Structure formats: structure tokens, C-alpha cells
Amino acid sequence: MARVSQEHLDARRRQILDGAARCFARDGFHATSMQDVLKEVGLSAGAVYRYFSGKEDLIAAIAGEAVGRVRQAFERAAQDSPPPTPDVLIGRVVRTLFGDEAEKQQGLDRRAYAGLIVQVWSETLRSERLAATLGQAYEGLRVSWAELVGLYRVNGVLVADVPDEHIARTLIATAQGFITQFALFGDAGPEFLERGLRGLMSMDLQKAS
């Protein structure tokens, strides 16, 4: 029997994940059955279960990828030296997540993908496994963003006496908030987020106090 190449195995796994993501984005996690996934991807149960033990396994894999994309987008956006300001940084992150190339790779339109991410977040409230997966990913993301805030301080562009972690959590929350808003309403692109942050950053805090 011919040996199956790793490239073939990876492509089959990708096919299953993409099909499951389309099902979940369209009908939600709980309304989607494994039979729905099998029909979507056009594979036998044996072929799918070779890669994933069931729906929860699929959801966990999709969740891990979603967080991974956020982290990769951030790491690419933060490679500049000095690091980009928050408006530019977060704008790059969301553009990477929801740009034309990302839409092509995921096989979902931008709003559907944002909705899938929000579904993943809400599912953590009932799934200990998913909560553990996302919790670990979030911790890594928080540490990375805190390091970036430290670079702001080193470069002299951040003077407020606020812990790096507090600012990192706020940056992450801003990105999360945009994803949620986009999933629910779909009426504002990354440029709204960039301009809004730029406007807030221009405030004269001495006058405000």
C-alpha cells in the first residue's frame, strides 16, 4: 500500500476544519451535527474520525486556530522598530484577520468569520476543555502584548505610570470588542477602529484633568 504523504494528510485535515467552520458559522455549534459536517466535506465518517474524535474536538481545533491567527497577526504587526502606535498596530491586526487574503484562506466571508470567533468565546462558558485551551492561548497573547507595551516605554512614547499588563489587557479588549461589534453589526471596518483610537490618543490629558 502506498504511503500517504504528510502533505496529503495536512490537506485532508484542512478540508475537514474548513468544512466544519462553514457549518458552525452558518448554523452554530449546537445546531450542527457530525452528520452535517460529513455532508459538508463529502467524506466518510471513518475519514473524518481519523483526524477528529468528534464535534468538541473540531470546535477546540477551530478555537486554537482562531486565537493563533490573532497572535500571528499581532506578531507580524509588531515587528517594526520602533513598534507601531496602538492605532496602527491594532488596525494591522484586524486587517490581517479580516483582509481579502484571510477571507480567501478561510472560505468564509469576513463577518461570518468574526461571528465564528465570537461563538468560540461564548462556548468557553460551558466547555472546560475549550476554556483551558483559550486560557492558555490568551496568557501567551497577554505576555506578548505586555512586552510590546514595555517597548513603548523604552522608546519614550509611553509616560503614564500604568502597569504594562493593564495596558496590554486594554489593547486586547479593544481588538476583541471590534471583532464582536463587526460580527453583530458588520457596519464598520478597521479604518473606524484606527481613526477612533487615533482620536482618543490625541486627547490633551492635562486639560481633561
Rank of each mutant, 00 (worst) to 15 (best):
V4G: 04
A11V: 05
D18W: 04
A20M: 05
A21I: 00
C23N: 05
T32Y: 10
Q35M: 01
D36P: 00
K39Y: 01
G42P: 03
L43R: 10
S44E: 01
A47C: 01
Y49P: 00
R50F: 14
R50P: 00
F52P: 03
F52K: 03
K55Q: 09
K55R: 13
I59S: 05
G64F: 00
G68A: 09
G68L: 07
G68W: 09
R71I: 06
R71S: 09
Q72C: 01
A73I: 08
E75Q: 15
Q79G: 10
P84N: 04
T85E: 13
P86W: 03
D87M: 07
I90F: 11
V93M: 14
V94C: 01
V94N: 08
L97G: 09
L97F: 06
G99A: 04
E101Q: 09
E103A: 12
E103N: 03
K104D: 14
Q105D: 13
G107Q: 12
D109K: 13
A114M: 04
G115C: 07
L116H: 10
V118L: 07
W121I: 10
S122Q: 15
L125W: 06
S127T: 08
E128A: 14
A137N: 05
Y138H: 13
L141Q: 06
V149K: 07
G150Q: 12
V154G: 00
V157M: 13
V159P: 00
A160R: 09
P163E: 06
I167S: 00
R169N: 08
L171D: 04
I172C: 02
F178G: 02
T180Y: 09
Q181R: 14
L184W: 07
F185R: 10
F185E: 11
G186H: 07
D187S: 11
D187P: 04
P190T: 05
P190Y: 08
F192T: 12
R195D: 05
L197A: 11
G199M: 08
L200M: 10
M201F: 15
S202D: 15
D204Y: 06
Q206G: 02
S209C: 00
